[in-house]
Design a protein around this nucleic acid. Structure first.
Length: 362
DNA sequence: CATGCGTGGCA
DNA sequence: TTGCCAAGCAT
């Protein structure tokens, strides 16, 4: 099939640019390896792509290294305990990804340990949607398939001057990306588009002067590149409030923890006991909601922003030698790093144990 | 098709 | 400081 000259020009320029400027990332093979016919390990591509869903490269790097070190193959990951994987994922966010990761590993392992060999087959696995299936197939199998993520939506809408608002523009963007994707090196092309979007064709202040495809860019020609893609305005995030209770057992050197419900927000993760989170700003800091009677003192507040609301928690602290209530346990301090504690919960614990200091990261 | 689902970095 | 949003998926 003859490709249009414009499409061919964009593809060629981007691949040439990628050969020089490709970001060196732990899950990528080197250009020399690619030319030698070496293909990336589908397991590593898959692991990196799941972690990269809505998550920055900088945040992923240490988690990727840790997972690959602990579980070098899909069979090793499939054999891991749920709790071990959730704890390893703690802090990275979107915890359904970790549950789906394990479910996917076990499905693949149960069928001989080889990932499906096409985007269509990959798409049926848990945690793998249109984007991830296409990305793995293009990168690991050289399948000529359109890989469309947020970067590609932005780059393509600018190149082709697609002014329809998202998400209505998605079909047109996918068609345009399909027309640009070459039969040779489709994976490199997809990664080139994503690298371009991450480093040059950025949401704000795109660096058009150093862009390898500035000449064929229709939005740049019109001077409206910064207005694309058009998106519907986002609803503002309401404030919810609540109270967390960090009970400390001085003799054991431990704090009281429990496990959250298996569905919903932070599903299956662990936490200190706390109230529900309500949109009502009054009353919820009431210490009558504490897990047991003790000399509770207010250590401070913790604020955290989720996808669709902001949360302000009053953090209470008490020392006690009481037995752990049903469904809770005394967790020794020296094991906290290995628990499935989301960032929010680590903030609460840090605030309670040292009200003066700023909250430390994981 | 709209909504729920985390977190950290950056302008 | 506040808002924005990054290599999306499931329902």
């Amino acid at each position: 099939m003859q490709r249009h000259d414009m499409a061919g020009a964009i593809t060629t320029r981007l691949l040439d640019w990628y050969d020089v400027h490709a970001r060196r990332l732990p899950w990528r093979i080197g250009p020399g390896d690619r030319r030698a016919g070496i293909r990336p390990d589908p397991y590593r591509v898959w692991l990196s792509e799941i972690m990269l869903q809505q998550t920055t490269v900088a945040a992923v790097k240490s988690y990727y290294a840790d997972f690959l070190s602990r579980w070098p193959t899909v069979d090793a990951l499939a054999a891991a305990r749920d709790e071990e994987v959730m704890a390893a994922w703690a802090g990275l966010g979107y915890y359904a990804r970790a549950r789906n990761l394990l479910a996917c590993a076990r499905a693949v392992s149960a069928h001989g340990g080889a990932f499906p060999g096409s985007a269509a087959g990959l798409r049926d696995l848990p945690g793998i949607g249109d984007y991830t299936a296409a990305a793995i197939a293009a990168i690991a199998y050289d399948e000529q398939v359109a890989v469309v993520d947020g970067n590609v939506e932005r780059v393509v809408s600018r190149l082709e001057l697609i002014q329809t608002p998202l998400p209505a523009a998605k079909p047109a963007i996918r068609l345009a990306m399909q027309a640009l994707t070459p039969p040779d090196r489709p994976g490199d092309f997809a990664q080139a588009m994503m690298d371009l979007g991450a480093t040059i064709c950025t949401p704000r202040r795109p660096a058009c002067t150093i862009c390898p495809v500035v000449e064929p860019c229709a939005a740049r020609a019109s001077g409206i590149q910064e207005t694309l893609p058009v998106k519907a305005p986002k609803a503002e995030k309401p404030l919810r409030v609540g109270a967390a209770f960090v009970a400390e057992h001085p003799r054991l050197g431990a704090i009281l923890l429990r496990r959250r419900a298996s569905t919903g927000l932070l599903a299956g993760m662990e936490e200190p006991p706390m109230t529900g989170w309500t949109a009502r700003v009054d009353g919820v800091t009431d210490i009558t909601a504490a897990p047991f009677a003790a000399e509770w003192t207010l250590a401070g507040t913790v604020e955290h922003t989720f996808t669709h609301f902001r949360l302000r928690l009053s953090v209470w602290h008490a020392e006690t030698g009481a037995a752990a209530p049903d469904g809770m346990w005394w967790q020794p301090f020296d094991g906290l790093g290995d628990r499935a504690l989301p960032t929010l919960m680590r903030k609460c614990i840090a605030r309670a144990l040292d009200p003066e200091r700023p909250v430390a990261k994981r």
